[in-house]
């Protein structure tokens, strides 16, 4: 489904991805782990088409198409979904309107009829329940005044409604208490399906205790330095990153600069 070959990307003058190779098949769950500044969020952002990143070498094919040649909205319409690490507040646009527009755009793209407000509400009700979302959230502005946990749940709720074929979860566990983490993980697990692939980007082991991956990759300094199965994640939890030759708490200067310039925005 997804094939990443020798992917290099930079933000401004900082090279962050330095040759990523990764193959993801339908039905698989991949976890991408690594210390801060290793390039995890950059990889997620490049796949979703975040404009700040510039791809300098390599390529990505998605269902045989050149993913990098598609606009962010076309990637979404083709079934790619990014759950944001920092979901954006959009005052003045209601959650309901936003999500229905997004859903209908995808449906039009697939040649399906648009859903009106009533059908839409009927369809999303069950999914709100699954993620413990209060129905009143639908009439509020997108993410405005949501708690950290509500924002993350809203991301997974959107994913449940849009039913992507490739979902990328960027640090979805950060800032969640254990109960919220379980709810979010359950939401993701409910979406596991033979035709769907999921990439879980995370710094910690915590989330993948609940969303059990088929493959685990360790990203460091813009490259995948180790791949394995779930055992690798367990080893990381016990030993930390040090045994892979990654100095704990030490980051490549370029990666730090890159991450900071993104966060400063």
């Amino acid at each position: 489904m997804l094939e990443i070959t020798n992917l290099h990307a930079k933000v401004e003058d900082n090279e962050i991805l330095r040759g990523i190779d990764l193959k993801v098949n339908a039905g698989e769950v991949h976890a991408i782990m690594g210390p801060n500044g290793s390039g995890k969020s950059t990889l997620a952002g490049v796949l979703a088409g975040r404009p700040i990143y510039e791809v300098t070498a390599g390529g990505v094919t998605y269902d045989g198409k050149d993913l990098l040649g598609l606009s962010p909205e076309d990637r979404a319409r083709e079934g790619l979904f990014l759950a944001f690490q920092y979901p954006v507040e959009i005052p003045g646009v209601s959650n309901m309107y936003f999500l229905r527009s997004a859903l209908n755009t995808g449906r039009r793209h697939r040649g399906l009829d648009e859903l009106d407000a009533m059908d839409f509400l009927r369809m999303v009700r069950g999914k709100m329940k699954l993620l413990g979302m209060d129905e009143s959230l639908m009439n509020r502005s997108v993410n405005e005044g949501f708690s950290g946990g509500e924002k993350k749940r809203n991301e997974i709720f959107q994913m449940a409604v849009l039913e992507p074929r490739l979902a990328i979860l960027d640090e979805t566990d950060s800032g969640l208490d254990i109960d919220a983490l379980k709810v979010v993980a359950e939401g993701v697990n409910a979406l596991r399906a033979p035709q769907r692939a999921i990439i879980v980007v995370t710094h910690y082991q915590r989330l993948i205790n609940y969303i059990v991956p088929d493959f685990v990759h360790v990203l460091y300094n813009g490259r995948i330095v180790k791949s394995g199965d779930r055992q690798l994640a367990l080893e990381l939890e016990q030993k930390g990153y040090g045994w892979l030759g990654i100095p704990n708490g030490t980051l490549s200067p370029a990666a730090v600069a890159g991450a900071e310039s993104v966060l400063a925005r």
């Binding site: 404009p51 979901p87 954006v88 003045g92 936003f98 755009t105 502005s141």
Partner: peptide, 29 residues
């Protein structure tokens, strides 16, 4: 807000429509 624009686009909402939606949202109050 470029981040809001990307957020809308990442959900499949086209660039022009996303700009329009944010513009309208600005005037909404």
């Amino acid at each position: 807000d470029s981040e809001a624009l990307f957020y809308l686009r990442s959900r499949g909402i086209g660039h022009d429509r996303a700009r329009h939606l944010l513009t309208f949202a600005f005037a909404n109050d």
